[in-house]
Amino acid sequence: MIAEQIGEASYRTAEAYIAETAACVGRKEGEGPLGQYFDVVWRDEGEAFSSFEKAEQALLAQTQDTALAKASRAWSDVDLVIGGDLMDQLIATDFEGRRHQRPLVGLFSACASFTEALAVGASTVGRKGPRTVLVAASSHHLTAERQFRFPLELGYQRTPTASWTATAAGAVLLVAEPTPVVVDAVTFGRVVDWGSKDANDMASAMAPAAVDTIQRHLDALGEAVEAYDAIVTGDLGVFGMKLAAHLAHTEYHFDLGTNLEDCGHLLYDIERQDVHNGGSGAGCAASVFSGYLYRHLRTGRWRRILLAATGALFSPTSSQQGESIPAIAHAVSFSRHGDSP
């Protein structure tokens, strides 16, 4: 729940603890450097399903089920489900709701959907409110490709700035009772559009949004970059990280320094897996946090981290009509209490 407003769109949260997380990914993501951190790695992209949309729904369902199982909870314990995906009309998140039958808040901010859902979840969960909130986000390489780019078998050359939509899902179970890892502050992003138009270069569109939100989050908390063991953006990739670091340094006067990491950069071996700029997709930040970042937060490598996933808010229609690409970033900071792993 929200304890206190500390900035224009920044809030300290209380009674928002992480009980468990889960991450399930496709084969390529499993072969990446974070492979060992994921709960389930699929053998393929879900070719046994009659459509890849159904495969994404199944991946999301499996991730949510796994998070609940790890926390020894049942679906009937869940007071609220919050989540999003990339498909038109949220047909992973919403269709998954047909099965679990729990109250559902579906939301969309493209690849920032996961931190948006986490921020909303952390703002609502509490001893008086919904006591158990399941937050999740998913994406699937093939459903995103057909919606945003080209049919799968159509030959085309990816440009060096293109990102690779991850087949991945991540889920976080937020509870009101104390656990070692707490969500202590959130900042809701605003739409930032600096005029980038190339849908194959989302990094250029998203980096200003990331820096804007990170700065407002730090300002609201009165913290410096050094207060965090890691500041992790979502889906900026190799090029976007350079842009964000430069922009923060030259225009916003703070140094992201060596603390900066990025989910799209972490998920793949950029060179070996031929993903060009890096990973993207709502499931990218969701799986990297739920699998990798949370593990290290929980077991002691890090005490405090900031996750600021970014989303490019364009649609195929807006892109074809020549509109520029608006972007948004939502930030969530996490802390671990005590020294217990």
Binding site: T161, S204, L243, T250
Partner: peptide, 11 residues
């Protein structure tokens, strides 16, 4: 300034 920098370092 941002776009000028981005154009310079864009792969």
């Amino acid at each position: 300034r941002y776009h000028a920098y981005a154009d310079r370092i864009r792969p």
